[in-house]
Write a protein that binds this DNA or RNA. Structure first.
Lengths: 135, 135
DNA sequence: TGCAACTAGTGGTATATTGCATATAGATTA
DNA sequence: TAATCTATATGCAATATACCACTAGTTGCA
């Protein structure tokens, strides 16, 4: 995969950055990918596009950092894989039971976040309708 | 309203903090409230609970600071209101056309964010179903 | 009179998160 | 052999956010 171009993060201004609008959203994405099966950093970065990190790609350094952090916290374990597909050695990550639990916690939190968002958008639409009635 | 107790913000760990999981989410909330009509800081803080800032209340200083920032950027204007309901003077904010546009931009972005979230949660559920089938 | 709620701030510190630049190195291909 | 792809990092600075402490004045009530 060719080197991805990164977009500068701008708080509220400029272009949309939807997946990045949520704090640490990469973390549950990585955990879900790993729940589906062991994988290594570089491949995870590609797989992340599934969750919207395609349009505004995430910096690889962020991914590698989170993976190391998760390993420290025992959410994942890793082993080096040298032989096999060729290419430089890869660090292959695997999710742990702690990681499973943490993922479940994230899902609960994101469901709440989704509700909050939905409520806001509904309030916006409702207000705008009323507003246009007495234009 | 009695003084609100604040909960400590913890990146990913600990209790949920759903509305705060979204970057600067207070900003569009304030703009929507002001789009419904002029209001002052203290009252806006209370009204924010409508958007989920009730369970994990936001620090008033954050709100006041955003209001000033928005005024600098001409998204809102303010006037002092001394007479009327009594009590100390209030700075009453009103949204500008620029503020309207900015709110609309936010809504577009949040709709994207909502989609991303929905996609993630769907992927989680789908995977978990499959997973439990070959338990 | 004194306290609580109303109202609007400022200042400062600590921590989190991200973005960018850069280093390193094996493998493949032109 | 040079470029490019694969792969994994680290360090640093900019930005964001949270939280705490403090000031300062008004009104109403027990």
């Amino acid at each position: 995969m060719p080197r991805m171009r990164r977009r500068r993060w701008k708080g509220g201004l400029g272009q949309a950055a939807s997946p990045r609008r949520i704090y640490r959203f990469v973390v549950p994405c990585l955990l879900l990918l790993l729940h589906r099966g062991p994988s290594h950093g570089y491949s995870l970065i590609e797989e992340l596009s599934e969750f919207g990190f395609g349009e505004s790609p995430i910096d690889p350094s962020v991914v590698y950092r989170y993976l190391r952090e998760m390993e420290e916290r025992r959410l994942v374990t890793s082993t080096w894989q040298t032989e096999g597909g060729g290419g430089p050695p890869r660090r292959v990550y695997q999710i742990t039971p702690d990681g499973d639990q943490y993922l479940a916690w994230w899902v609960r939190d994101l469901r709440e976040t989704a509700k909050v968002l939905k409520r806001f958008l509904a309030a916006y639409e409702e207000h705008m309708e009323e507003d246009s009635e007495h234009h």
